[in-house]
Amino acid sequence: MASNSLARPGIWSIRGPMSQRRYWIFAAIGLIAPIIAWSIVANSGWVEKVFMPTPGSVWARAVLWWTEDNLLQDAAISIYRVTAGWLLSAVIAMPLGLLIGTFRPVQALLEPLTDFIRYMPAVAFIPLVMLWIGIDEGSKVAIIFIGTFFQMVLMVAEDVRRVPTAQIEAAQTMGATRLEIIQLVLLPSAKPALVDTLRITMGWAWTYLVVAELVAANSGLGYAILKAQRFLQTDKIFAGILLIGVIGLVIDQLFRLLHRKAFPWMHTKS
């Protein structure tokens, strides 16, 4: 009766296999269970409604916000600020990171400095930014920029440094010049990692957006959350936080889609 084949490893074996279908079932449980738990707690009466609104009332508030209170405009202005701050940092961080990761003198000149600045809390710059720029759009963009730029430079530099030396040297022995190596080896080789860096820093940009809007704005999702607190509209606070989460998730998935479409060679295995 000895069995002559090893049993198929179960899903709980270490790094065990899992079918696509099961994966999504578990993912759905992971997403829905907290909502059910929240619903039970909120409806039970253990916690006062003012502190913990029910999922239903949050949804109703979100609908109301959309129909009466210009949710779309709040979201649009927030998205605009995030994109502006993040784009500004990307436009400067990409070439700078490329230079740091490629040329040692640039690295020596800028990397320790950047490392130092990135440990200064971006939030602590807010008073300074307000003094210098005031509280118009520029200040929000500036705070997002300060929060993301320095990290982004270091990550881009690291992405470029990760390009295998053999790829560079192979090009050199085929007669490539420095400029050609940057254009035809370093950039295309680092590109997938760079897209990941952009995706991750986009997440940070959202964090700094909310910080900026909480202290220095009179519009946007962060400001709406702050205002809701003043009027004890806990359901609106919930709605705002969840909305930012959803927008972030959508943007993240778009980046992942871009990654799959732009770099098919990374996602094909024979």
């Binding site: 295998p164 053999a166 790829q167 040297e169 192979a170 050199q172 022995t173 085929m174 007669g175 080896v185 295309p188 080789s189 590109k191 770099f263 060679w265 990374m266």
Partner: peptide, 21 residues
């Protein structure tokens, strides 16, 4: 005085460009 196309080199690995076919 430096690398050149007259002296090609084959490395042990990681020298192909994975984004090119």
């Amino acid at each position: 005085s430096g690398p050149g196309a007259d002296r090609a080199m084959v490395f042990q690995h990681y020298s192909l460009y994975p984004w090119l076919d």
